[in-house]
Simulated assay, not measured.
Amino acid sequence: MTAAWDLLVSTEDITTTELREAALPEPGDGEVVLAVSRAGVTANNVTYAVLGDTLRYWRFFPAPDGWGRVPLWGFADVVASRAEGVTEGQRVYGYLPTSSHLLVRPERVGPHGFRDAAPHRSELSAVYNAYALTTGDPSYDAALEDLQVLYRPLFTTSFALAAELAEGGARGAGTVVLSSASSKTAYGTAFLLHGGAARVVGLTSVGNRAFVEALGCYDEVLTYDEVDRLPLEPTAYVDAAGDQGLRERLHDHLREHLVLDLILGVTHQDTGRAEVVHGARPTQFFAPDVIRDRTVEWGRAGFEQRLGDAWSRFVPRAREWVDVVSGHGPAELAQVWAEVAAGRAAPRTGHVLTF
């Protein structure tokens, strides 16, 4: 391999990958080259790939026709800069491709970071275009980079979802049910909702039940074949699995008691159609829209303060819930992607790759 590479994922079959040599980017006026340094790979990245066309995730990092570069969250270092206010050696946290390097065009450069103003990203969600300088992030801790790449993007979604549900979005439900309860996004949400007005129930596989129960953030844990044990009361369902068969059984059991069916993500690749069986019509939860609305409501400083406080409470628990598995280089990234995309990663496993 040369110093630059791309791990390409087939947009038709995300388990098919190809590792290719790439040209090292050369920055033009106003541009910066980032070298990807550390990134996490979780089921969240599978969601980005599965919904790559629907929610335009493939458009963030263009690739040859039929291929995509999966968005990852992680850290990168500035290795070349021709942009005012951005200097070589700075370290940033943000949205990165399955590649060795990323060319960005910084705007709104300040002590906290910058946004990528590359033309192809201008119509995409602004949440994903921000790059935070580690020197300007009060919550940054170099010793906790692994936890940040594994949890911070997922926890931000959990935070937005929990805020939405706790402040009226649950439509008066007395029970909130989360599928794929062993996933980091689901149990981050449960952690934030636990002890609130609604009872929090986790749905999981038989094999993951003990892990989910040990988390201590669900009031009750049921396996997928125990859906009929849910009480017939106003219930909000957060679908973090994308399993159409499960949705149908849950709708059939709860019927008019199902007041909310919110599609959070997809960990099953064969999701089928989110059709109404009985009860509430399925709707897609898109965290960037909620983050935008909350930022308007609370102000940027208010949003970051609330999120930072929640993150500070979550991190000590999260350290107990994950076994970080470290890998290095693009070949290991390809192996990890194959494992996670196929759903073979254990719930306690957190894959972190360095380059």
Rank of each mutant, 00 (worst) to 15 (best):
R105H: 13
P106N: 07
E107Y: 00
E123D: 14
L124R: 09
R115A: 06
F114S: 04
S99N: 06
H112Q: 07
P106H: 01
H112W: 07
R108A: 13
H101W: 07
R121K: 15
S122L: 12
P111G: 07
R105F: 00
L103E: 05
E123R: 13
R108T: 04
G110E: 05
H120D: 15
S125N: 10
G110L: 02
S125V: 09
P119C: 12
P111D: 07
P106W: 01
F114W: 04
L103K: 08
E123V: 14
S125I: 00
S125F: 11
R115P: 04
V104R: 05
L103G: 06
L102E: 06
D116G: 05
S125Y: 12
D116P: 07
T98L: 14
R105Q: 14
H112K: 10
S100T: 05
A126M: 08
P106F: 01
R108L: 11
S100E: 02
R121E: 10
V127Y: 03
D116I: 11
R121L: 15
P119W: 10
R121G: 06
T98H: 05
P111V: 03
S99R: 00
E123M: 08
V109W: 09
P111N: 03
L102M: 12
G113E: 06
A118L: 09
R105G: 02
S99M: 00
V109T: 15
S122N: 04
S100I: 04
V104I: 15
R108W: 03
A117E: 10
L103D: 08
L102P: 03
P97F: 09
V127C: 04
V127T: 01
D116Q: 10
H101P: 03
A117M: 12
R115S: 11
R108S: 13
E123G: 13
P106C: 01
S122F: 00
E107C: 06
A126V: 10
P106V: 07
S99K: 01
S125K: 03
R108D: 14
P119D: 15
E107W: 06
D116V: 11
V104C: 00
G113F: 00
R105M: 12
E107M: 00
G113R: 00
A126N: 03
V109P: 05
S122P: 05
V127R: 04
P119A: 13
S122H: 08
F114D: 04
V104A: 04
S99G: 11
S122R: 14
G113A: 07
P119R: 13
V127W: 02
